[in-house]
């Protein structure tokens, strides 16, 4: 810290820029300014310096080019705290949905035989390449996620991680259960809370945008069994769960297990 100000960098990899937009759209950001110095944030600051040291580095987006691999390594070297922001940075984002298809096939579908001079690669989470100190979840994260994390850092403490599902918030709010009452494939039971069950409030099934709960308590298998009983195929279940969890190492084997169970 210099002059008592926290040096902040906000860096974008491959994404929709929604996490930064959410951050920039907080009116509270004006209250943060006297306490912070923005060293790098291209979306709003022309005088941005990607290679300067910072106290907190916020990274949005998945690692999707070779250039971005180098960039995240540089950010790590220059930052005291690295925060992965949003589903792309934390889990690889929706662009990882077809991560098991060959990149060449995806490329051909979109670009045909066209070539560009940059080196694309399959989307991956930031943590694949560098140590990440804290995650802010969501697609996009809630404003309160930013406020909580930054507020906690500013007082010299450490924010806590969320380890319970969307279902918990949904029950507390008393919304009708989308999964049981409407019979729709809601991912609330396996998805990390913090959104206050935003979509179930609108009667819409959760698509899991905050990613699966960590600490090995995302019970893909139990939910897959419920979905299976509702008539969904293994492929349909995997596709839905993979929208935001394609890189989850437990997902496939846990769903697979349910389809190997002997019918009673």
């Amino acid at each position: 810290m210099e002059n008592g100000k926290v040096r902040i960098g906000f860096y974008a990899l491959t994404s929709c820029y929604g996490c930064q937009l959410q951050f920039a759209m907080m009116d509270e950001i004006l209250q943060l300014l006297p306490h912070a110095e923005i060293v790098c944030w291209y979306m709003i600051e022309r005088n941005s310096y990607e290679e300067e040291p910072v106290d907190i580095a916020f990274i949005e987006g998945s690692v999707s080019t070779e250039e971005e691999v180098e960039l995240v390594k540089k950010i790590r070297e220059n930052a005291k705290i690295v925060v992965a922001v949003g589903s792309c940075a934390v889990h690889g984002g929706v662009q990882s949905w077809e991560k098991d298809k060959p990149l060449e096939e995806l490329w051909k579908t979109v670009y045909g035989d066209g070539k560009v001079k940059f080196e694309p690669k399959m989307a991956e989470p930031v943590s694949k390449y560098i140590k990440v100190d804290y995650n802010i979840y969501g697609c996009p994260p809630e404003k309160k996620d930013f406020l909580y994390a930054i507020g906690t850092f500013l007082v010299g403490s450490w924010p806590e991680d969320i380890d319970y599902p969307v279902c918990l918030e949904c029950r507390l709010n008393g919304y009708p259960c989308v999964l049981i009452e409407k019979g729709e494939p809601c991912l609330g039971p396996i998805t990390r809370a913090g959104c206050d069950a935003r979509c179930p409030n609108y009667g819409i099934a959760c698509i899991g945008c905050r990613g699966a709960i960590g600490y090995d308590v995302a019970w893909f298998d139990s939910l897959a069994r419920v979905f299976k009983e509702k008539g969904l195929t293994k492929e349909e279940i995997l596709e839905r769960m993979k929208i935001f969890n394609a890189h989850n190492p437990k997902l496939e084997e846990m769903v697979e297990k349910i389809f190997q169970e002997v019918k009673e």
Binding site: S64, E67, G93, E105, L106, V110
Partner: peptide, 29 residues
């Protein structure tokens, strides 16, 4: 120089409602 995200390719063969949930993720603004 931003990396490609292949939205048309990744939604091929996907359920219509799931594809419709993914398309807006192309852009935040």
């Amino acid at each position: 120089i931003e990396g490609p995200r292949f939205f048309e390719a990744i939604t091929l063969g996907k359920k219509l409602d799931e594809a419709l949930a993914v398309y807006p993720r192309i852009c935040s603004f």
